[in-house]
Design a binder for these strands. Structure first.
Length: 455
DNA sequence: TTTTGAGTTGTTCGA
DNA sequence: GTCGAACAACTCAAA
């Protein structure tokens, strides 16, 4: 079955959880299933059972407390707008039943509100935010608690939750790619620290190379805490031959996640609306055919298409390429960043409301501390710079793999004889570019001119 | 209060 | 081929 044949899978209907339109996308649901399965197996090994129940959160939890005699419910704090509302409501409802809801910081390095400017305001620029974070100590991870299990509690079955894709099962090979769950997360962290961390500054930008941590989904699903990662990084930095620059760079990437969460806390509309108000007037276009070409990796720009296909096939895309494809969607195609945000939300295993929203706004130029609008990635230059040998493009865009390096990122410039030699007819196996870079770039700058703040 | 310096990841142009 | 400047204008954070 070819890549395109897989296209029309049925999206899972949105459930009516508190998350509303941000209920987990397809790729996230796959990961969630695997992660829960792993947790269930782990608890079994400890002599317990994981209990699955669905319904109104407060009702379900009250029932469980009655059945077990529990006097308190413990959880990690969450920061999505719906989650904080849910927690507040739950707190009030459980209180009526004399059950305590105990919420603890578990997924960030610093709680939102704990890192503020000297004026007591939230930071809106990353660098001073991160400097302030670095002045605050990060708590060490806590020891594993003693666990006691109640037996014989009724439970639903994970398989009945229909988190996995069917007809077609586009994730059938994902178990070879990913190991959701705590053990897999620990292995991934160990592998990263042992090898890539020391070369992070040089390798992290090369999509063909294993240079990034690939921890994002593990972190998102709570399989690995930031404090654990942090304490490992600090220890590694302190060792004699450590490449502290590389480790610090990686830690700063954790800082971007942190920054996104803090922004989301203070500006909860970030996933839906432009942070900079003048972007509300931006003359976005909405060309379905072009959006589809972008989604399917059929733009005619090899690095963009490689990225979009990697995303579709693996639920992941290399960070450098994420920026390139996002810039292409927003600036070359003048498509609203929310279109890209929605697509990533559905297709990324690490889809995260805070990071996804803030990062799309960063690329579009509408966000806090965003990239200046005139910074428009050239997909050819980016390809030639970061995928020089074309290994990444050849992996994901095999129909042009026979082209020589010289024309791999610019197939439309290849002489006819070379195209023939590589078995490529543009417009047949592989598309002509759907936009001309130079024109698109000028169009983007012109569009930006219309929303420039007048003096 | 006012001032000052700075601000993730780039591209293009011309010398 | 290499290099530096220009690309816009604004807002933020701290002195």
């Amino acid at each position: 079955m070819s890549f395109i044949d897989l296209w029309h899978w049925n999206k899972a209907p949105h459930d009516d959880s508190a998350a509303g339109e941000w209920s987990p996308g397809g790729a996230s649901r796959w990961w969630l299933h695997q992660s829960l399965q792993s947790l269930e197996d782990g608890i079994k090994e400890l002599g317990g059972d994981l209990v699955y129940r669905s319904g109104n959160t407060a009702t379900v939890l009250k029932e469980l407390c009655e059945e077990t005699g529990a006097e308190a419910v413990y959880c990690s704090r969450r920061y999505e707008p719906w989650a904080t509302q849910q927690e507040s409501a739950l707190y009030a409802e459980l209180k009526d039943s004399a059950i305590a809801l105990k919420r603890y910081p578990g997924t960030l390095l610093h709680e939102p509100g704990a890192v503020l400017t000297q004026g007591g305001d939230p930071f809106k620029v990353f660098t001073p935010f991160w400097r302030a974070c670095l002045r605050n100590p990060v708590s060490e991870p806590l020891a594993v608690p003693e666990l006691n299990f109640h037996k014989s509690l009724s439970s639903e079955a994970l398989d009945d939750w229909n988190l996995l894709p069917k007809r077609p099962d586009w994730a059938s090979h994902w178990s070879d790619l990913w190991s959701p769950g705590e053990a897999g997360a620990a292995r991934q962290l160990e592998a990263f620290l042992a090898d890539s961390a020391a070369h992070y500054t040089t390798r992290r930008d090369l999509p063909a190379v294993k240079g990034t941590s690939k921890l994002s989904a593990h972190i998102h699903f709570g399989e690995l805490s930031l404090r654990t990662i942090w304490s490992h990084c600090e220890r590694l930095s302190a060792s004699n031959d450590a490449n502290t620059g590389s480790i610090a760079k990686f830690q700063a990437e954790l800082g971007w996640r942190e920054f996104s969460y803090h922004l989301l806390h203070f500006f909860p509309h970030i996933p839906e609306a432009s942070f900079k108000a003048n972007f509300n007037e931006f003359p976005w276009l909405h060309d379905e055919a072009r959006i589809k070409a972008w989604q399917q990796g059929q733009t005619g720009y090899p690095i963009v298409d490689a990225g979009m296909r990697e995303l579709w096939h693996t639920g992941h895309m290399h960070n450098r390429v994420r920026m390139v494809v996002a810039s292409f969607l927003c600036k070359h195609l003048l498509t609203h960043w929310r279109v890209g945000e929605d697509w990533f939300w559905d297709t990324l295993v690490d889809a995260d409301l805070a990071s996804n929203g803030c990062s799309w706004q960063w690329v579009a130029g509408s966000g806090a501390d965003a990239a200046p609008y005139f910074r428009i990635f050239n997909p050819v230059t980016q390809g030639e710079k970061f995928d020089k040998q074309g290994e990444y493009v050849r992996r994901w865009v095999p129909e042009i793999a026979e082209l020589p390096d010289k024309y791999l990122h610019t197939p439309w410039e290849a002489p006819t004889a070379i195209l023939e030699g590589a078995g490529v007819v543009l417009g047949e196996q592989y598309p002509e570019p759907i936009v001309d870079h130079k024109q698109a770039r000028q169009g983007a700058l012109d569009a930006y001119d219309t929303i420039k703040v007048k003096q």
